[in-house]
């Protein structure tokens, strides 16, 4: 990113190839909408180019990039107010990575489907918390910086969110 900041804009292509799938996953889990997620990924990289002068090598690139991604998502959410989460993620035209369809895994797949549904029942803030810590594997310290809270508070919130998720999941599984 420092090279991009210094004017070597074509280096942005490398960053795109390294991070675009992660951002797509982030937006997809937040919006449950493939084409929208693709547009939002594009917006993140546009903003990276536009605000490249604000990047400093003191912080981690990942944290800065997710800061932009969160802003892009918040702007989108503000404009659209709510998402159509009633649609099952499985109905998406986007192919999922897991293609194992053996009989033995069917029960497990049902359980995971219920878990996906439970995830969609969480508030956007809680879903984002799990998205950043569990799916994007950001360190608690990075998430604390992003959310402007202490690392301890992040851990406590993640724990509470897991508890809530578990109770929704159990309800759906009954």
């Amino acid at each position: 990113m420092l090279k991009v900041k210094k004017g070597d804009l074509e280096k942005m292509s490398l960053l795109y190839h390294r991070y675009s799938r992660r951002f797509f996953g982030f937006f997809y889990n937040m919006t449950n909408d493939g084409p929208t997620s693709e547009d939002l990924v594009q917006n993140v990289f546009m903003r990276m180019l536009k605000y490249r002068h604000t990047y400093s090598d003191e912080g981690k690139f990942e944290t800065w990039a997710f800061h932009l991604a969160r802003n892009v998502h918040h702007d989108h959410f503000r404009k659209n107010k709510r998402y159509a989460f009633q649609e099952s993620m499985q109905d998406s035209v986007y192919e999922t990575v897991d293609e194992d369809n053996t009989e033995l895994r069917m029960t497990r797949e049902d359980e995971i489907d219920n878990l996906k549904e439970a995830l969609l029942s969480l508030s956007p803030e809680k879903r984002e918390l799990l998205e950043l810590t569990r799916f994007q594997k950001l360190k608690y310290e990075q998430v604390a910086n992003l959310l402007g809270i202490s690392e301890s508070a992040v851990k406590v919130r993640v724990h509470r969110t897991l508890k809530e998720l578990r109770s929704i999941y159990v309800r759906l599984d009954q």
């Binding site: 799938r21 797509f24 897991d98 996906k116």
Partner: peptide, 20 residues
């Protein structure tokens, strides 16, 4: 919480289209 954390690891994430 460990169980649910571990189960979340099995939630598959789709890939974008080539248009992106």
């Amino acid at each position: 919480s460990e169980e649910i954390w571990s189960d979340l690891g099995e939630v598959s994430v789709p890939g974008p289209s080539e248009r992106m």
